[in-house]
């Protein structure tokens, strides 16, 4: 691969949720590096420091400590340096008002937990041009010899 790898930045404070997302992305064949941060401020810091110079895709939980997801989204979209960053909101609520608010602030996709991973990966694929998805030759349940 000659292009820079897209890094998935996962901002999620619940360890279980983070673990589930990572596992399921891998199981769906996503091989991009996943960087996890546990609060909104850490996500903002990572993005503003430019990551490792690699393109980013942000998976953003709404209920985050320190700076919540909505505020992270608002700050990113208000800053011309980061306004183009694709953001997928992850949340346990499907309150239409909150969904509307996130779209109004400019999130790319809004996904409610528990995540249906097929559609999730499909959404990721449509968003992240450089998402690397490797279809495994055989299901993970039967390990290749």
């Amino acid at each position: 691969m000659t292009h820079q790898r897209l890094v998935i930045l996962l901002a999620e404070d619940d360890d279980g949720h983070a673990q589930l997302i990572e596992r399921n992305l891998k199981r769906a064949g996503v091989v991009n590096p996943i960087v996890r941060v546990a609060d909104g401020q850490a996500a903002l810091d990572y993005i503003r420091q430019g990551g490792n110079g690699q393109p980013l895709l942000l998976l953003l939980d709404i209920n985050l400590p320190r700076v919540d997801g909505i505020e992270v989204l608002r700050q990113l979209k208000a800053d011309p340096n980061t306004s183009k960053l694709p953001v997928i909101m992850l949340t346990t609520t499907d309150d239409p008002r909150e969904v509307d608010r996130c779209y109004a602030l400019g999130c790319s996709v809004y996904i409610t937990k528990p995540v249906r991973y097929e559609s999730f990966v499909e959404a990721l694929r449509r968003l992240g041009m450089f998402l690397e998805i490797v279809k495994l030759p055989s299901p993970p349940s039967s390990p290749s010899t």
Partner: peptide, 22 residues
């Protein structure tokens, strides 16, 4: 809902593991 997501997700993980052990 937040712990429930873990219960749902990890019980599915267990099922995947059961298949793999199988």
């Amino acid at each position: 809902r937040s712990p429930l997501v873990n219960l749902m997700g990890f019980s599915e993980e267990l099922e995947v593991a059961v298949q793999q052990i199988g």
